[in-house]
C-alpha cells in the first residue's frame, strides 16, 4: 500500500485510519487509510462493488463502520446523535439519483436545510438559495417542482442544495452516472467551477476527463481497499499496479 502523502496533520480536514466495515460477515472495507487536506480535490474510481461509494458514505455517517477511526474537520466520528449532526452540517453530499424532495419546490429544497438546521430567517435563506441557483445557472426554475426538471438540472439543484448549507467538504457519489451524455457536461462544468474556488471535494466518478482536469489525487479502489493513489498525470500515464492498468485499459478503451 502506498504511503499516505500528507505530511503535516494540522491541515488535514479528513483523516481516516484503518477503517474496516462489514455487511454481516461480508468484509466491504479493508484497512482504509486516507488523509485529505483542506482544499484538496480527490477522485475515487474503481470497479463496481469495490467499496468506493461506501467509503465516502462513511464520511458523513450514512454508513456505520466497525473498526478504525475517522476525523472530519477536527471532529471525531463517534456514535452520538449530536456529533453526527455536527459533521453532517459540515459535509455536503450529492447523490447518483439526485434525491431531491419531490413534494417541495426547487427553492424550498434549497432552503430546507438553512431554515430548519441553521435556523436562518426565510428571506435570508431564500436570498442565499437564489445566489446558488444562479451559480448553477437555473434561477428561473426556482418555483418549479423537481419532477418538472431534466436530470442535469436536477443534479445541479442537488449541488446547489448542498452548497446552501455552506459546507467545508463536498462528497460526490457518482453524480453523472444516471445522466444522459449531453447533460453530463452541464453538471461537470458546475463541479469544475466549484473545484477552482478551492472547495475540498471527494468525487466517486468514472469521468476521467474531470479527474485529469481538476483532481489533485486519484485513488483507485478494488475489493474494499485502496490499491493505488497518485497525482492524475502519474496515475493515468504510469500506473504502478497491474490491477490499475487493467482497469484503466477497460474504461479508457471504449
Amino acid at each position: 500500500m502506498s504511503a499516505v502523502k500528507s505530511s503535516s496533520g494540522a491541515e488535514d480536514i479528513i483523516v481516516i485510519e484503518n477503517l474496516n466495515k462489514w455487511y454481516g460477515n461480508f468484509h466491504v472495507l479493508r484497512d482504509i487509510n486516507l488523509r485529505v487536506k483542506k482544499g484538496e480535490r480527490i477522485v475515487i474510481c474503481g470497479p463496481s462493488g469495490s467499496g468506493k461509494s461506501t467509503t465516502i458514505r462513511c464520511i458523513n455517517r450514512l454508513e456505520e463502520f466497525q473498526e478504525g477511526s475517522l476525523v472530519v474537520d477536527g471532529v471525531e466520528m463517534i456514535n452520538d446523535v449530536k456529533n453526527i449532526e455536527t459533521i453532517r452540517k459540515d459535509v455536503g453530499m450529492v447523490f447518483q439519483h439526485f434525491n431531491l424532495f419531490p413534494h417541495l419546490t426547487i427553492l424550498e429544497n434549497l432552503t430546507l436545510g438553512p431554515i430548519w438546521v441553521q435556523k436562518k430567517p426565510k428571506a435570508e435563506a431564500e436570498a442565499t438559495a437564489m445566489q446558488y441557483l444562479e451559480r448553477v445557472k437555473i434561477p428561473d426554475q426556482a418555483d418549479k417542482y423537481p419532477g418538472q426538471l431534466s436530470g442535469g438540472q436536477q443534479q445541479r439543484v442537488a449541488i446547489a442544495r448542498s452548497l446552501c448549507m455552506n459546507p467545508n467538504i463536498m462528497l460526490f457519489d457518482e453524480p453523472t452516472s444516471a445522466l444522459d451524455p449531453e447533460m453530463i457536461k452541464e453538471v461537470l462544468d458546475v463541479m469544475v467551477e466549484l473545484a477552482q474556488e478551492g472547495m475540498t471535494m471527494l468525487c466517486v466518478t468514472h469521468e476521467m476527463g474531470f479527474a485529469k482536469k481538476v483532481a489533485d489525487r486519484v485513488i483507485f479502489m478494488d475489493a474494499g481497499q485502496i490499491v493505488e493513489e497518485n497525482e492524475p498525470n502519474e496515475f493515468f500515464n504510469n500506473p504502478q499496479n497491474e490491477r490499475t492498468k487493467l482497469f484503466l485499459s477497460q474504461i479508457l478503451n471504449h
Binding site: G24, H27, D31, Q225, Q240, N241, E242, T244
Partner: peptide
C-alpha cells in the same frame, strides 16, 4: 510493475455478528 495483492477478508469482529 506491482501485482495487486488483496488483503484477505477477515471475519467480522465478534461484537458485530453472532
Amino acid at each position: 510493475m506491482r501485482e495487486f495483492q488483496p488483503v484477505p477478508a477477515r471475519p467480522a469482529p465478534v461484537k458485530t455478528v453472532g
